[in-house]
Design a protein around this nucleic acid. Structure first.
Lengths: 362, 362
DNA sequence: CTGTTAGCGCTTTCAA
DNA sequence: TTGAAAGCGCTAACAG
């Protein structure tokens, strides 16, 4: 601990007051060139490094932004984290991550970790914390939520998941599919619910009847995707395509399908949602709705910085678009499950163009 | 800011001194039950929450541990991060992540972020920071490195990557493969180099001649795996198996192989390294060397806590084992590339049993 | 057991 | 421009 160099030591070495040293460090106030040099030299010589903790206490600003996240290991959240970190790059602020791991009982503790560290702002990535808690919190510090809307709170960032679900389903419909299974995510996830809503709308807008029994829970995980698909397969229900509400479950679906001898996309088409970095490399490369989690993260950081500096945030438009790859194709005329011949109505594929999607900001 | 409740206010409310409040908060010193209740009530009533920044300054401990990482979005690092966070759970310490993204120029800034925040200890996950810098740092605070050895520094945590590479290759050799391609990682990654060393040793120990031209760079990424495999395929060189030095490149290899009409494992076997969460769900499920990044992270946290508390760390043994799944199988007697008939010598598969591997701790 | 009183390292009036 | 001094919120001797 003899290592600790303080302003006082620097001031002494440079034969000036601590106030002067402080001014130089922070670039506040005017200081003569001569003193500046003296101080810089002293800093150099002593190897001084400002103690951010002390600065924080004195200034009442920690320069830290809390990020309440769900899963440090998830490929999707990981991208958001990366975006957030990059977004704060060079701003002086730094994100502090704490994950509640989708557990009710961890939220409070997680929040406590952040609050006791006096974070200057909060970014909330999904999660179960009650809206009113968030709302109250937002009265105390800048708060930005991602992937969930909080009524009465301005500053929630999210993509139009409903539209994404619509895009994906519409793509399948346009390819002539009529029996489209849906691997739903947990209904506690806002995203999951919205995506499925898009799936429903696509059917409503078409003349294709929706088969409710083709909608099945898959938990947003690979494992869940496998299980759900196997259940579907075993049930003997006929389907020629599946829309998985996230890429992880889509990959699980692909595995289950292929294991049961189904060819993708000849026998069954699959479309996912997220466009994880690895989704372009699975076999076959997955058609999916791209939402750039990284950009979302960057936008969140930008929003926070704006709020912190009292500026208004001009939401940049984040694109949500369908990446058509090799896991989807036109419906086959050969039914795979039942022997009932089908009427196939091939629609114009071009009609499912990707659309730009607005980024909702309160 | 009228929100800020301080010890002083609590003390006043409870009609005691700040020292007493402090004692209660920290459980230090003896306090009568009556005062304790008074104080607890006051804390409750005022909604007091200790300011960790102030505590840190006063105690000279930030309760934060810096984690110098490489990639917030990588599935592999993500797992380590998760393990680290879990490892600190309940210890009062919290990890602060900052990633240098494998960039030379970011290291210094990254370290600065941590040091100015006065972290109590440092966990270094790979990276390019010079050994001597690390060594000097370790003189100032507890320092644990993961995935890289620093000479002269006691407290580096790593799995026996060499052994893992050996295990993987040996498995292939045991299945009768003789032409085994190796998709190498960047030679700047310690892990990558060690894994390949294991590949080499497996050949040396067998009577199978090593074909140097079957070793090719794949950059540890899916994209790199695809490219490398395609180069291999185009070169016309004969091979019946590939050992990819990480799962990401293995998945890329699988894609390239399947796109070129190769069946896995009938035509070509593939084995990876890492056992990422998704590796069991790609098609076909990947045979790979499991190294539990999460456990590694937990171990790192545990090591740090021990050092911080002056205890000696009893390294728990982390298992490194081969997960045999569906991407590997016995060599086929039908050569796929050349028309030269081969001698196939099927060895006893059982001889490549997984071995426990020591966790190296200085 | 409990209160007084110095700091921890830095910023920021307020005067000079 | 510059310096003196009063905190920021909390802890930790040191006396009682």
């Amino acid at each position: 601990m003899a290592e600790t160099v303080t302003v006082e030591m620097v001031a002494h070495e440079a034969r000036v007051s601590t106030a002067t040293v402080s001014r130089i460090i922070n670039g506040s106030g005017k200081v003569s060139a001569r003193r500046r040099k003296q101080v810089m030299d002293a800093i150099e010589k002593l190897g001084y490094r400002p103690n951010l903790l002390a600065q924080s206490l004195a200034r009442g600003q920690s320069m830290n932004v809390g990020v309440l996240t769900q899963d440090m290991a998830s490929p999707f959240f990981g991208q958001m984290h990366q975006g957030i970190e990059q977004g704060f790059q060079g701003s002086g602020y730094h994100p502090i991550f704490v994950s509640e791991e989708w557990q009710d009982d961890k939220q409070h503790a997680a929040l406590e970790v952040l609050l006791s560290r006096r974070v200057d702002a909060l970014i909330v990535l999904g999660g179960y914390i009650e809206d009113d808690v968030l709302l109250e919190l937002s009265g105390q510090l800048p708060l930005v939520t991602v992937g969930r809307e909080v009524k009465g709170l301005e500053g929630s960032l999210s993509l139009d998941n409903e539209q994404g679900g619509y895009l994906a389903t519409r793509h399948l419909l346009d390819l002539g599919h009529r029996q489209i299974a849906c691997l739903a995510g947990p209904d506690t996830h806002y995203d999951a619910v919205d995506r499925m809503a898009g799936y429903l709308r696509a059917f409503q807008e078409s003349d294709v009847p929706l088969q409710r029994d083709l909608v099945i829970d898959a938990l947003f995980s690979e494992e869940g995707g496998v299980r759900a698909t196997e259940r579907l397969l075993k049930s003997g229900k006929h389907f020629t395509a599946v829309f998985a509400c996230n890429d992880q479950s889509a990959i699980g679906a692909q595995l289950a399908l292929q294991r049961h001898g189904k060819r993708i996309p000849q026998d069954v088409s699959v479309v996912g949602f997220d466009d994880l970095p690895s989704s372009a490399f699975v076999y076959p490369p997955l058609t999916t709705v791209r939402q750039s989690a990284k950009l979302l993260g960057q936008a969140a950081a930008a929003a926070v910085i704006c709020k912190l500096e009292g500026k208004t945030f001009a939401p940049s438009r984040l694109e949500l678009k369908l990446m058509v790859r090799e896991s989807t194709g036109p419906v086959s005329h050969m039914p795979t499950h039942t022997s009932i011949p089908q009427q196939v109505e091939q629609q114009v594929a071009g009609s499912s163009r990707p659309r730009k999607v607005r980024l909702r900001m309160g």
